[in-house]
Design a protein around this nucleic acid. Structure first.
Length: 576
DNA sequence: GCCGTTTTCGGCCCGACTGTTTTCAGTCG
């Protein structure tokens, strides 16, 4: 599946690093390999599929003849000769050393030349023995910074979940708002683009000249700060105690704020593309504005810059240079789904199985905090014994309670659903006679996660009472990769049978992943966003689910739970 | 190594901050 893409992206980014380390004036070759790695990583389909369908690899931007040949070589033989050769030119694990904050190619080259550093162990030893400090251009602080960088890499995971990053960023924003006189403040970077995982946190503010020093002082003195990495008038960077995150704060003038937002929201690839467009008109974009020579053409808002480039404003979630600029040029940007479009939540658990809250508490909370028309209670089925799964009789009792509660609130707000287990042989954990009484059935795999589960899920979709497949790949970010699926077959079956696929909005799931969301939409498959709530605090994950869907270019039409219940019912009935 | 509505050759984003330097190279985003 996506195996080739991941492997090739890693190989090409390694090759880029090696060329950079060799430094034979090949820095642009290195950049080309970096661009190619990113291009492949972002592909919605697998490179092997592109080859089968006689499409040309060379049509992918940043993949030319030479790299396309290497892709073909890899798929045919399982390796790339040039890569094997390159690896021999540098010590093993050398590429990993580049990941240390503060260590770039020039530093590494010098260290290798002067001290014959080959591994992280060599490096630590040389740093601690004082040898490094003796080298011209190095000093006490540089040595300490590299040691800190190594320590940070060991203690912090690479990236944290979006929801966790949003929480940290939110605290900082509130703190700054309270203590300082700010005009505007925005969280930008990959948080604004709603990536699933986050590396650094970027925050922008505008404020009066006279306030700036105070703002930076406050920012670097906050309780949550573990270390001040850099501090200046326009830019400071701190590391947080929680999660070891780097947080950047940058201060701009009011008239620059749009340009700064654009610049620091990224992605890098999106910005580079915009800059090239500007260059073609002999203009220049930087974080302060769009310029023609010294003359500023735009900069106060993002819209003003896009507009001067002849483009409509592009939503942050789309800014990955995955075709959004081309779509914008043709005025064909999709009208992305928004949180306000959502009419209900189709996946949640109560105390009847492994949820923390009674149905009554769930209902009360949702009616107070969300503008939904319906929620579906989908507790686990009987084979999920560890989660208190329910059999047909118990679910029948639960449905009686739901009817009573609906009577009490005088509407049909609560729907009768179930998350039925897909058993290892592809059959379901509840009888068809029971399932046909349900308003909504989501079917999920919870056991035997380490095998190909394509056939299992295909046969579940053949059941006329299964309306959606829950967390289709079973991944848990940072813990479990998820099982393999022939996604093409899943999509075919989904559209043939009228079964929806879930975007499970738990921050550690976000399953389907973005490129599959986009592939499903292209295939005309219906999607649902479900929070899979087990406690009241999780309902808010719908916002992240919507952000995730937007990254996959979803419109409201592509998401079933943007519709009124009558329409959802139609979807259910059509399959039966 | 990639790319091209000026180019098949000659470009390839650009500014802030740090540390070690006396004017700048390296790193980062």
């Amino acid at each position: 599946m996506s195996k080739y893409n991941r492997e090739l992206a890693k190989i090409f980014s390694d090759m880029a690093a090696i060329y950079e380390l060799q430094g034979n004036g090949d820095e642009y070759r290195a950049r080309a390999y970096e661009n190619a790695a990113r291009a492949i990583d972002n592909l919605p389909e697998d490179v092997s599929e592109i080859m089968e369908e006689e499409e040309k690899l060379e049509d992918i931007r940043n993949i030319g003849e030479s790299i396309a040949d290497k892709v073909r070589e890899y798929i045919k033989t399982g390796k790339i000769e040039k890569y094997e050769e390159l690896k021999k030119t540098i010590p093993e694990d050398f590429v990993d050393l580049l990941e240390i904050e503060g260590v770039g190619p020039e530093t590494l080259k010098t260290l290798q030349k002067e001290l014959n550093i080959k591994t992280k162990e060599d490096l630590v030893e040389a740093l601690e023995s004082g040898e490094v400090e003796e080298i011209k251009g190095f000093g006490e602080k540089t040595v300490q910074n590299i040691l800190d960088g190594i320590a940070q890499r060991e203690s912090a995971g690479d990236r944290i979940l979006l929801a966790d990053a949003v929480e940290i960023a939110g605290e900082i924003v509130e703190n700054l708002k309270e203590a300082c006189d700010l005009d505007e403040i925005e969280v930008v970077g990959s948080i604004r683009r709603r990536r699933t995982t986050i590396g650094d946190i970027d925050i922008l503010v505008t404020a009066k000249e006279s306030e700036r020093e105070k703002i930076m002082d406050h920012f670097t003195d906050m309780d949550i700060v573990k270390k001040v990495v850099a501090k200046g008038k326009k830019k400071s960077t701190v590391q947080t105690k929680a999660e070891d995150r780097d947080v950047d704060l940058r201060i701009f003038e009011e008239g620059e704020f749009g340009a700064a937002m654009l610049y620091f929201t990224g992605s890098k690839a999106h910005n580079v593309h915009l800059r090239k467009m500007a260059q073609e008109k002999d203009w220049k974009i930087n974080e302060y504005g769009l310029f023609s020579g010294d003359k500023k053409l735009a900069g106060k808002t993002e819209e003003s810059i896009y507009s001067r480039l002849g483009l409509p404003w592009i939503p942050p979630e789309m800014r990955e240079d995955n075709g959004e600029i081309e779509a914008a040029e043709k005025d064909e940007l999709p009208d992305l789904v928004s949180f306000d479009d959502i009419h209900g939540d189709l996946h949640m658990h109560s105390t009847w199985s492994d949820g923390n809250n009674s149905i009554e508490e769930l209902v009360e909370f949702v009616r107070e905090n969300f503008d939904y028309d319906y929620i579906v209670i989908t507790d686990h089925s009987k084979s999920q014994t560890q989660a208190g799964g329910l059999d047909e009789d118990e679910l029948g009792e639960q449905y009686e309670e739901i009817e009573k509660l609906n009577d009490k609130i005088g509407s049909d707000f609560i729907k009768k659903g179930v998350e039925v287990d897909i058993l290892p042989d592809g059959s379901l954990d509840l009888s068809d006679d029971f399932l046909k009484e349900c308003d909504w059935v989501v079917a999920s795999v919870h056991r035997r996660m380490n095998q190909d589960n394509t056939d299992r899920i295909l046969s579940a979709m053949d059941n006329p009472y299964v309306n959606a497949i829950g967390h289709p790949f079973g991944r848990l970010i940072g813990k479990r990769q998820g099982y393999s699926l022939d996604f093409e077959k899943i999509l075919d079956k989904a559209s043939e049978t009228g079964t929806a696929l879930e975007i499970n909005a738990q921050p550690a799931r976000m399953d389907l992943e973005v490129r599959r969301v986009r592939a499903a939409i292209d295939a005309g498959v219906m999607l649902v966003i479900g929070t899979d709530t087990h406690n009241l605090g999780s309902f808010i994950n719908m916002r992240f689910g919507v952000g995730h869907a937007r990254r996959g270019w979803a419109t409201a039409d592509d998401i079933l739970n943007t519709r009124k219940w009558k329409e959802v019912q139609k979807f259910v009935e059509q399959k039966r």
